[in-house]
Design a protein around this nucleic acid. Structure first.
Lengths: 287, 287
DNA sequence: TCTAGTGTAGAATAAATCTTCCGCACAATT
DNA sequence: AATTGTGCGGAAGATTTATTCTACACTAGA
C-alpha cells in the first residue's frame, strides 16, 4: 500500500505538474481525468477557488480533488493549489527564480555578498514593478508638459535628492533649463517665486514624506505651474496637487531601498523630455 | 447602530475600491491607514495570502483587517479579498504582454514609453552584470576596511555625485561618520587634510573621469588612508591608487546610463558597513 | 452468474480560517 | 484634570474548508 501512496515526486513548478498530468492522463480513472482536464483548462479557478467551488465547477466530488492531488504525490489539495498560485504570482518575474539561486547558497558566501544579492534582487523586482506600473499615456503626458515648460523646477529632499541631482546633471548636459530647488541656503522660496504657468515642476517624495517637498510643490502649483510627481504610494500628499502622478514601489532589502527603479524612470523621463524638446525646438524658435 | 455598520456601498470592482480607499484615506484611523497603504502597494499579497499572513506582513492585527474591510462596506475580510482576487484574474497575463507589445511595435506606442522600457532593460542587464562582476572576497575586504574606518570620505563628482549623496544620506541614518567631499565651496582640500591612516575613502568615478576626483583620491591615499573605488573600467585612473577596486559596467540606453546597478551596489556596501560596525561596535567601545 | 478489485460519493471528522467580543489605552474635549 | 469616545490588540468562538473513512457501485475476469 505504501509504495502506491508514497509518491516520491510532488512537482514543485507548474510546468512540471502540467507535464506530469499530460503524461499520465490516459491511464487515469474517469473522474480523475475529468479533474485533470478541468485543471489544465481553468488553472486560475484552481488557484483561487475553494475545494468545494472547484468540485462543483468540475462536476466532481470534493474528495476527488484530494485524491487527484494525492495521485500526483501531493500531500493534499492545498499543496497542489499552492503550485497553481505560485504560477500566477511569478507570471512575469522570471528573475525571481534566477535570483533565488543566488540567495540559496548565500550561506557559503560572506555576509556582504548576501546583502548585495539582496539588493540586486530588489532592484530586479523594482524594475519589473516599474514596467507594470507606468501608464504609457501618463508618461507621455508628463513628458509633454515638462518638455513644453520654460523652466523645470526639481523638487526633492532627503532620500529623493540624489535622483533630482542626477536629473539636474543630465538636464545640464542636454541643455534643458532646470532649477534644482533646495540645494543650499534658504533662497528656495525666492526661486519658486519665479515660477509661473509657463513653467513646470517635477517633485519626488518617498515615504516618510518631507513636508518641505510637499509645501514647495504646492507653492509651485498655486502659481499655476503644473506639477509632475514621483512617489511610492498613492497615499503620498503629493497626490492631490499633481497634474500627473507616478507611483513606483521600490522594493527594499532589509528595510533599505536602492533607488534602482526610480533612477531608471527619471532617466527615461529626462531623455524623453530632451528628445521632445529637440523636435519642438526646431520649429518653435525658442533657443 | 445599523446606520453606521450598514454601508450601502461595498465596492465590487478593484478600481472602485481603490478609488474609495484613496478618497477616504485621510480620515482613516492609524492602523486602517496602514492597512490601506499596504493593500494598495501589495495587492497581490492580499489576493493570495491568508488574513494571518497579511496581517503579519502589514504589521497589523488580523482583526484590524476585518475592521478595515467593514469600514468599506464589506461583509468581512473574505469579501474584500474576493475583489482583490478578481482583479488578478482579469489582469492575468496582460502585464508582460503589454510590455512586449510595446517593445515590438515601438511605432505604435508613445516614444516616451519606448525610452522607459529601454532603460528598464538596461537596468536589468546592469544588475545581472553586477552580480557576476563583483568578487565576494573584494566586497568583503572593502566592507571590512570601511567599517573599521574612523571617518569615511566620500569622493564623487558629476555623474557619480548622486550616488555619494545617497550614501551620505544612508550613512547619516545609520550613524556612520562620513564626510561627502565636494559638496560646495572649495573647502574640500581642508577637509581632506584631516584624513589619516585610521580613515578610509570611497571614490566613485565613471568615464569621462573627473580629474578632481582622481586628485582628491590620491591626496587621501597619500595621507595613508585606504581608498576603495567604484569605476566602470579597469583603465580608470583610480586603479593604481585603490586598495580595492570595483568595476561595474552600467548598461546604457541611447548613450545614457541610469545608475541602477551602481545604486544597488553602493547600498549593499553601505548596509554591509553599517552591519559590520554594529557588530564591532559592541566590543570596541568607540561610540 | 458470481467474485474480486478498484473507483466513487457522501457523510463525518479534523484543521484552518475568519469573525466577534471585551478590556485597555490613548486622545480629544469640556 | 477629568471624562467620554474611539481605536486597538488579543483571545475565544463560529464558520468555512479540507481531509479521511466507509459503504456502495461498477467493471473485469472466471
Amino acid at each position: 500500500m505504501d509504495d502506491k501512496a508514497t509518491k516520491p515526486s510532488p512537482p514543485v513548478s507548474f510546468d512540471a505538474l502540467r507535464a506530469a498530468i499530460l503524461e499520465r492522463r490516459s491511464d487515469l480513472p474517469k473522474r480523475l481525468t475529468q479533474v485533470a482536464a478541468y485543471a489544465l483548462d481553468n488553472p486560475d479557478e484552481i488557484a483561487f477557488g475553494t475545494a468545494a467551488s472547484i468540485a462543483e465547477a468540475a462536476r466532481v466530488q470534493a474528495s476527488t480533488l484530494v485524491r487527484f492531488a494525492q495521485h500526483f504525490g501531493f500531500d493534499g489539495f492545498s499543496s497542489l493549489q499552492r503550485v497553481f498560485r505560485s504560477r500566477l504570482r511569478e507570471k512575469t518575474s522570471s528573475y525571481e527564480e534566477r535570483l533565488r539561486l543566488l540567495e540559496q547558497d548565500s550561506g557559503a558566501m560572506p555576509e556582504s555578498m548576501g546583502i548585495l544579492s539582496g539588493f540586486i534582487t530588489a532592484g530586479h523586482r523594482s524594475l519589473d514593478a516599474l514596467a507594470k506600473a507606468v501608464e504609457p499615456e501618463a508618461l507621455e503626458k508628463a513628458t509633454e508638459i515638462l518638455a513644453g515648460a520654460r523652466t523645470i523646477y526639481l523638487i526633492a529632499k532627503r532620500r529623493s535628492y540624489p535622483i533630482s541631482a542626477y536629473m539636474a546633471y543630465a538636464f545640464g548636459k542636454l541643455r534643458v533649463p532646470c532649477i534644482a530647488v533646495g540645494t543650499a541656503s534658504g533662497i528656495d522660496d525666492d526661486l519658486l517665486a519665479l515660477a509661473g504657468p509657463r513653467d513646470a515642476a517635477f517633485a519626488i517624495s518617498f515615504s516618510p514624506y518631507a513636508s518641505e517637498t510637499v509645501n514647495q510643490a504646492r507653492a509651485v502649483a498655486e502659481r499655476g505651474a503644473p506639477v509632475i510627481s514621483l512617489t511610492d504610494s498613492a497615499f503620498s500628499p503629493l497626490a492631490g496637487l499633481s497634474a500627473v502622478l507616478f507611483e513606483v514601489a521600490e522594493s527594499d532589502h532589509a528595510g533599505f531601498r536602492s533607488l534602482s527603479a526610480s533612477m531608471a524612470f527619471t532617466m527615461a523621463l529626462t531623455v524623453g523630455i530632451a528628445e521632445k524638446r529637440r523636435l519642438q525646438g526646431s520649429s518653435q524658435s525658442q533657443s
